[in-house]
Each structure stands twice: as structure tokens, then as C-alpha cells.
Simulated scan of single mutants.
Amino acid sequence: MGDAVIDRGKTDLASHDGRDDLIAGLSAVRVWGTLGWHDIRQRYRRSVLGPFWFTLSTAIMVVVLGALYSELLHQDIHEYLPYLAIGLVVWGFISSVANEACSAFIGAGYLIKQIRIPLTVHICRIVWRNFVILLHSLPVVVALIVFLGRSPSIEFLLVPLALFLLFMQGVWLSVVLGVLCTRFRDIQPIVANLIQVAFFFTPVMWSPEVLKSRAWVAQYNPLYHLIELVRAPLMGRPLQWESWAWSIGMLVVGFAFAHLLMRRTRNRVPYWL
């Protein structure tokens, strides 16, 4: 099915190079959208719950860890459970995208060698399928927030924009990791280990307030701001200008770097596979 989808759209995607690969790839929504959805259907084929298994596992983890750490950290469970749930869901998206991006071009090597389409299509395919899983879990988080007595505030309207920025962050990050890991295969295990370590240094299960005078550790953590971009409006917190500034700044710098990297390496990637 994947080859058929690409064959139907490859005529429109054939004329591109490293200078416009990002734009051409992002524009091919029908191609990477269909491929990403096909990946999800194949992964959960013959499964009753399908991608909702991720939602169920997240719900179980939130309830167990929430009950435990709310006592250890002396947090109000009505405040802590939504905080933890949103953090785990967004972190799951970030970590999955980063880990899968390392093998994005390697896994699609047979397509890259045979069909000339933007490399960014393979990147968006990965980001999209993980984004769909994220969207499966967020309604459960919203239901949990309402169940605990919170009602959506005006800040909730910022959630779609925050999710869009999160998706685009995943695209540029995946382009960079995809290219570097294809050229230098040792980077992939390094990224996997860094993601594990970063989890403990990022306010996913704990809040910056517990650090007191060392709260700057969280404030200068870009991953914290990506999570807070979604968590703050969902929990009805005031607009966090620092998080939006960090996120937009990272997006601009990240895409500039990804464009430069793609422009220099676009034609070399097939030879590295």
C-alpha cells in the first residue's frame, strides 16, 4: 500500500532538491498522512483496542504514579494527576519521535533508492503517526481534568496552536536526527541514552517549584517549555510567555539548521544507506 500511495503522488514530487525538500515534503500531506495512518493500522493489526493500548497504558501509569508521587512530593492529587498525565503524554510523543527519527531514512532505504520523493516525506510520516497516538490520549487527559472538578478556561483555545507547534518541532528535530544518524550510526544509541537521562531532568513528574532556588534548571530546559506549551492551557494556567518564546525561537532556529543540513546532504543520503 505504501508504494502505491507514493506512486500516485510521485509525479508532483519529482522536481525538488535540497533547497526545497522541506517545503515539498511538508506540502505532500496526502502522501505522508496516508503512510503514517497505514503504519498505525499495521502496528495494531488484529488488535481490539489498536492505538488505544497506548492510551490505556498511559492511564494506568498516571493513576499508579500519581497516587504514589503525590504523597512523596506532598502534592494535591487533584492538581498533580492532570499535571502528570499531560507531561507523560507529551513526553511520550517527544521521545518516540526522537528515537524513531534516528532510523527514519535507514528504515525507508528501499524507497529512497527507488523513488525520488522529498526525504521530508519519510520524516513527516514518523511525526504524523506519533502525533495521531498523541491525539488518541489527549481526550482522556481532558476527561480526567473535568472529572477532577476542573472546567476548561479561555486558555484552552491555545491548545490547537500549541499542538501545531509541537508537531513542527518534531519535524525539524527528526530531519536533523535522521540525517546525522544515517551518516554516523553511533549517534542513534547516544540519542536513546540522552532521552532517558533527559526524562529525569525535565519537569514531567515533578514541578520546578520543588527545586526552589534551583528552578532555573527547568527554566533553561527546552523540553520543559515544549511540554508546558500544551500543559499550561489544558490546565487553565495563565499564558506562559517564556514557553511560547522558547518554542517559537527553537522552531525558527531548528528549521534554519534543518534546511541548511538538508541542502548540503540531500543528495548524499542515498549513498549512506
Rank of each mutant, 00 (worst) to 15 (best):
A4L: 11
I6N: 07
R8F: 14
G9Q: 06
T11H: 13
L13G: 10
A14H: 12
S15C: 09
G18M: 03
L22R: 01
A28V: 14
A28W: 06
V31Y: 01
V31H: 01
G33V: 06
G36Q: 07
G36S: 05
R41Y: 09
R46P: 00
S47K: 02
L49P: 04
W53T: 04
T55Q: 03
T58D: 09
T58H: 13
T58Y: 12
I60C: 12
M61D: 06
V62A: 08
V64A: 14
V64I: 15
L65D: 11
G66D: 06
L68Y: 10
L68Q: 03
Y69F: 15
Y69A: 04
S70W: 00
S70A: 13
L73I: 03
L73E: 04
D76H: 08
Y83H: 11
I86M: 07
I86Q: 01
G87E: 00
V89R: 04
V90G: 03
V90S: 04
S95D: 08
S96G: 03
V97Q: 00
V97F: 05
A98Y: 01
N99Y: 06
A108I: 10
A108D: 08
G109I: 01
G109L: 04
Y110F: 13
L111I: 08
I112H: 05
I115A: 09
R116W: 05
R116Q: 12
P118G: 07
T120A: 13
H122D: 02
I123L: 07
I123Y: 03
I126N: 13
W128S: 11
F131D: 05
V132L: 15
L134D: 09
L138K: 02
P139R: 00
P139M: 08
V142D: 00
L144C: 06
V146D: 06
S151N: 07
S153M: 10
S153K: 08
L157A: 14
L158F: 14
P160S: 09
P160A: 11
L161N: 03
L161I: 09
F164K: 05
Q169W: 13
V171N: 04
L173D: 01
V175S: 03
V176T: 15
G178T: 05
L180R: 02
F184D: 04
F184G: 02
R185V: 14
R185Q: 10
R185E: 10
D186N: 02
A192L: 10
N193E: 08
Q196G: 15
A198F: 12
F201I: 13
F201N: 02
T202L: 02
P203Y: 07
M205F: 15
S207W: 02
S207T: 11
V210A: 01
L211T: 07
L211E: 05
W216Y: 15
Q219L: 09
P222N: 04
Y224R: 00
H225R: 02
E228H: 04
V230P: 07
V230C: 08
P233K: 06
G236D: 03
R237H: 13
P238A: 09
P238N: 08
Q240W: 11
W241N: 06
E242A: 11
E242T: 11
S243G: 11
A245M: 14
M250S: 13
M250A: 15
L251E: 11
L251A: 12
V252L: 14
G254M: 04
F255Q: 04
F255S: 00
A256G: 15
A256R: 13
F257Y: 13
H259N: 12
L261G: 06
T265A: 09
T265Y: 14
R268A: 12
L273H: 01
